[in-house]
Simulated scan of single mutants.
Amino acid sequence: MSYLYEVGIHGGIRRAADILGINPSVISRQIALMERELQLPLLERRGRSVVLTEAGRLLADDYADSRQRRLKLEGYLKDLRHMQGGTVSIHIGGGFVSTLIHDIVSRFSLAYPQVFVEITVANMQEMLNAVIHGETDMAVAFGAIGNPEVKRYSFTRGPVCAVMSPQHPLSSETAVSIPTLAKQRLIALSDQFGLQRYMNEMFRSHGLVFTPAYRCNLFSTAMELSVAGLGISCMTASAASSMIATGQLVAIPINHKIANESQCHLLRNSDRRFTPAAQHLWQLLRHTFNDQSR
């Protein structure tokens, strides 16, 4: 039923599969099994898209209602477990961890000491899914956002830099070009990260392909690879600030328009109502990142 629901809201099996990160054949097979068991068609094709039949809509609506009730129940149970002070949940990109904890959560906890704060580090796609499905109060994401289902507040967060060991031959440069980067051993994040999408687009604008020597799914892993001298990772200087401060890494700005104009976003579901605590955290995020972007 969850697959059927995703097909309904995304308008097709392939688009739903891309969002869920699974093979389209898995969705097709499961829905076909349901159709045989119910002896009712659940999908019908209209032109190039697939829509739910009346039976499919009934099942998808029931699934959505059940999930909302379950999420609300889980929230109530969390309140009981965590000192009855309520909960606030936030998904963030790995490059925001230090700023979130030191500049925001430390202040939030003074105002709401009884509120339980749940922090999840995630990639762009995971954050979008969590916000759209009501699984988190808010998210802080880096990269281009085009989804109309989320409310967002955008701010600049650049420039994107080439982050490397101080012993790297390029470490004394004031800026580095994309063609120069293309000749180096590079460290990539998965393509589900907004930052990596920015990097891929920068390389495409030069007719090049971002071809890494390493790929990982954590900013901390990428930084450790750079500290070890194994390659260049790409992120903002603020994301690598702790290792830059200790002299383990240096950040060289990338000479590209996208690198200089890259954006981050505070995200929330347009239909989700904030508690006073969640609203306070949202305002702290807005004010902090707005001040840092000036």
Rank of each mutant, 00 (worst) to 15 (best):
V26T: 15
I27T: 03
S28D: 10
L33F: 06
E35M: 01
G47F: 02
S49I: 06
S49L: 09
A60H: 09
A60S: 12
E74W: 08
Y76D: 09
G85V: 00
V88W: 07
F96C: 07
S98Q: 12
H102T: 14
S106N: 06
F108D: 05
S109W: 04
P113G: 11
T120C: 13
N123H: 11
L128I: 05
G134L: 01
M138Y: 11
V140N: 03
F142I: 03
I145T: 11
G146E: 04
Y153Q: 11
Y153P: 01
P169G: 14
Q184M: 05
Q184Y: 01
F203E: 10
F203W: 14
V209L: 07
F210D: 15
F210T: 09
Y214T: 04
F219C: 13
S220C: 04
E224A: 10
E224K: 05
L225Y: 05
G231Q: 08
C234W: 05
T236V: 08
T236Q: 04
T236F: 03
S238L: 15
S242Q: 11
I244G: 07
I244N: 06
L249T: 09
I254T: 02
H256A: 06
I258Y: 06
R268E: 10
F274V: 06
A278H: 09
W282H: 09
Q283E: 15
H287V: 06
T288K: 12
D291S: 11
